[in-house]
Design a protein around this nucleic acid. Structure first.
Lengths: 196, 196, 196, 196
DNA sequence: GATGAATGAGCATTCATTCAT
DNA sequence: CATGAATGAATGCTCATTCAT
């Protein structure tokens, strides 16, 4: 990568990071492109050399952050030391929940913008390795599932939807109190998808 | 109610209906007050006689529509003829899903704007009768739950989150195909909350 | 005066008083007719039964308040016990300054709106008795003036202009410190207008 | 200065000039930003690149015009050829009066907006040289004053207040007729401030 | 490629005024 | 006489987008 390209990549990152920071602190609609470029330290016109408009950077950011979330969970959590699928799954989910607990802006951003379509698209096209890792976990202990993708879908939706209010408003209870029930719910869902 | 008051109520409804129609077709942020009043057939200033600003009408609309959804389910579905809690619950949920299937705008609106906080607040303050009906169903067949409100929370979040992509984009599958799995997931969640 | 007329006069006064109170506290331009009628406790349409528009009530208020200021000075100050014109003049001016010191809103209102034209017009047409009183003071001790009206004009302008910053901002000094110099300046102006 | 900067300065001037022209002909409150930009031949958004809002341009205009008035008097009037302070003072005042006589809009603008606070602030911070020139005149012929700044204050207020009605409405008389009396009043004020 | 001055359509909001009741 | 709901022109201000440098 030449010096020019390095510079370009640096500008792109700067714009993405600044946008994420602003999006998560003051919301997407209340963040203007002027603010992004100002905080990123580039000229207004430069923004349009890298992104089509605000929705373009938003979309790229969502895919990027969603994958980051999973990558962190797959790299950091000790799920590999667990023996069965259920334990691995909960280890991964707990890591993701921990990340969100640490960054409320992230919760708001991901929850309000991450639809299943964007999420699965991001995973299949931009980050196939992450998807592959999930596949591996699913089948490595010889389990058989009736509709594995629907199971993943159901669990992802449940976790992402239920953590929002729990983490941000501690309503109806706080995350630590809710976790046992969430775990039990997830396990029972997994059980209901198991092929007999 | 005098002629003047009738007229006022009619204006208010006209504004609410128009706002809902626009919010569900093109989104809240992209809907301007100018558009609402134009479509409602009233002058711009009139809007401010009835609502403080766009967020005021938005909030009132959410509570109104969320309650309407439940009321319809409680009034229309034949849940009363069912014998146990599980069957009643599924009957109610199926009615709500049917309503949403018929009105995709409603799905978008509810999903993007209805957080648990607003939902529970709307139910406890504005429509306590709806809440009472749910309580009744919970306990009438002598069942005992470890944390009934967390169970309701979990189910509400799962249903509202998972129906979005399924109804709007038939992704990962269409509603009819998904329903059996959703039912099974719900039943297993209910089971996991049952006191032993 | 009949009961109806009493009611009318009461409404008129209420509007005038409220307008004055609002004009002096938040400024004329920032006061809306809506606010005036709301605080006065009458309907919006009623305003237009008594005044043409905001500028109409403003004008009437200025004349009314300016005369009130003089009337108070002529009635309250002990200028009658003084022997010569100079002493009477200073007694009257000091009373007016004291009134203004007590009501900064009045200073702002009078100073920014009271032009000589309105002032002299108000005195000659609406309150000729006040004017007469001034005439009397001018000549009762047998003094002769080269241009008495220009003298009055000069003194009125000097006092009304110089008291503004002194009273409201104590800049360049406060009223008590400034008064001796103002007195001396006035006396020297009077002297310069005396016929030799 | 590059071509871009030249262009910017030209735009700024255009906006200031247009604003002054409109402010003096139809008053500040009745002048809208839309009108200013329309007459200045720039887009609405451009205004906000140069000024924060209407009050910002107003403030800058007042300081600018007040200084211009004094600068003209100090540069143009032959006050330097006069021997004593009194004569120099009257020469300067007469020049200012002449400027105002020529430009009634200026009278209106200065009189309605120029308070002592703004005036002295503008002179001390933005144009200290003008202030220095006044100081020099005060003391160069060895005169001693009891409170020189209060004297200046008194004279400035008297002149600026009394010229308004005289110039704009020739009421109670026209400027030429009033000048001798104003001169005499000023001289007697100066005399009253002289240290004995 | 990068800049940032300029644009102008678009927005929320205010408010004097009218008029049917 | 009095009301106050309704009006809609007008205003200040924002901001995504363009383009000459």
């Amino acid at each position: 990568m030449g010096k020019v390209d390095e510079n370009k990549e640096q500008k792109r990152r700067s714009l993405l990071d600044t946008a994420f920071s602003l999006f998560t602190t003051k919301g997407i609609t209340k963040t203007s492109i002027s603010e992004i470029v100002e905080n990123a330290g580039v000229a207004k016109g430069t923004f349009y050399l890298y992104f089509k408009d605000k929705y373009d950077i938003e979309e790229k950011l969502i895919a990027y952050k969603a994958n980051q979330l999973f990558q962190h969970a797959l790299n950091t959590s000790d799920y590999n030391s667990k023996n069965c699928f259920e334990e691995k799954l909960l280890a991964i989910i707990d890591d993701i929940l921990a990340q969100m607990q640490k960054n409320h802006g992230l919760v708001r951003f991901v929850n309000k913008n991450l639809s299943w379509g964007i999420f699965s698209h991001a995973l299949t096209t931009a980050h196939p390795d992450t998807l592959q890792a999930i596949e591996t976990i699913l089948y490595e202990d010889g389990r058989r599932w009736s509709e594995p993708n629907l199971m993943i879908y159901t669990i992802v939706e449940l976790v992402s939807a239920s953590c929002y209010s729990v983490i941000l408003h501690k309503d109806p209870t706080d995350l630590d109190s809710y976790k046992p029930y969430l775990h039990r719910s997830i396990l029972s869902i997994v059980h209901s998808f198991e092929e007999t």
